[in-house]
Design a protein around this nucleic acid. Structure first.
Lengths: 202, 202
DNA sequence: TTCATGTACGAACGTTCGTACGTGAAATGC
DNA sequence: GCATTTCACGTACGAACGTTCGTACATGAA
């Protein structure tokens, strides 16, 4: 390639900001003009990085996914498999939401709700990412069960569903009601649910 | 009043359609031009009913609230207070979401996620409606506890939080993953949680 | 030093947005 | 039946949208 290479650092700066905006105002509320103005660059210059609005949206999702994996998943995978890893995963998630890694709370909560009823590439990408997260949670439950840290008759999908519910609702309630207490409730629910499962079995 | 009377039936037709659109594409995705075209009327004629976009959005929320109350709350209030009423309330909600009373799933789930990080009258209205629903659930738990159908040491807020989480997540999962099984999971979770609470206490 | 390549830019494209205005029809009160 | 009021409409507006240009500049190769 001849000519000046495209600044990859700038691209990342754009996408990081885009993810923050999208977590607050949605991937549609994320407009190229606004993004360019906030970053002090020209609309067409920014546009050139992506070629279309949809491509910008998809790239934003990829960036958010990377941040999510770095902050929530990877540190938990450093812990040995089993109940400890599961607890770490859930705790990391609550921190990730509570600390507002993205300005508008969990990026995926906001954006999933926006696109879950609109067919297309964006929804497909979000569905895949959501499935990955769901699978990871289920697999981690299964590992804990295999190690005897959860009862042998534990329904992994069911338990993952319920744990996920506590996380999502903590995020939602904290945003809509300015209720930081929601995270405390979620931690109680998680502790109780895991405690109950490892005690009595189900 | 003198002059031609405004067709109140038409207004309701507009708002019913508006609620469906908003449940799919959000209250911002709900545009006056599109709404008018779909209903076969003029943009300015429709506009006259409301006077501003925000007023249309607020009226849409009010209509959705009425529908929600009629479908979920009222039939449950016909049941005597206690555990039966609580179960009826939760079951009605799951039906309301599962049957797609609104085209894009639970209206409030979609719209809350859209506006929970955007200060203004719309967020205020949604917060109030969400608080009403939350309070109703908590109060119903308290009534069941008072009747001895739940243990005396039941934390009503905590139980309401967890039950709400199961409902919301069933709605979310069914939309994003086309997973009707999510409602089955939610029902299992509710049954287990209420069974566990009325058996062992907490 | 010259040339080819690719970037970043301002300007403008056509479209859609929410909103304001003026006109004729319709319905009321006298 | 007339006067008055109010609605529903077409039209028009400025702003913002995503996108497409043409151009100036920076770069590495010839």
């Amino acid at each position: 390639m001849v000519g000046r290479p495209r600044d990859d650092g700038a691209r990342q700066t754009i996408l990081r900001r885009a993810a923050d905006i999208a977590s607050q105002d949605g991937l549609e509320g994320l407009s190229i003009g606004r993004l360019a103005t906030e970053l002090g660059m020209s609309k067409s210059g920014l546009f050139g990085y992506f070629g279309s609005k949809e491509e910008l949206q998809l790239a934003t999702i990829r960036t958010a996914t990377t941040i999510f994996v770095d902050e929530v998943v990877k540190p938990a995978l450093a812990v040995e498999p089993g109940l400890d890893r599961l607890r770490r995963l859930l705790d990391n998630w609550l921190h990730y939401s509570e600390q507002r890694t993205f300005a508008g709370g969990c990026f995926f909560f906001s954006v999933n709700a926006e696109f879950d009823a609109r067919p297309g590439r964006i929804r497909d990408t979000l569905t895949a990412a959501g499935q990955d997260w769901r699978d990871l949670l289920t697999r981690t439950v299964e590992e804990a069960r295999g190690l005897g840290e959860l009862p042998a008759d534990t329904d992994a999908d069911q338990l993952a569903f319920e744990l996920l519910a506590f996380l999502q609702t903590a995020n939602a309630a904290s945003l809509l009601f300015d209720d930081a207490d929601a995270y405390r409730r979620a931690r109680i629910a998680v502790d109780h649910r895991l405690g109950a499962a490892s005690r009595s079995g189900r």
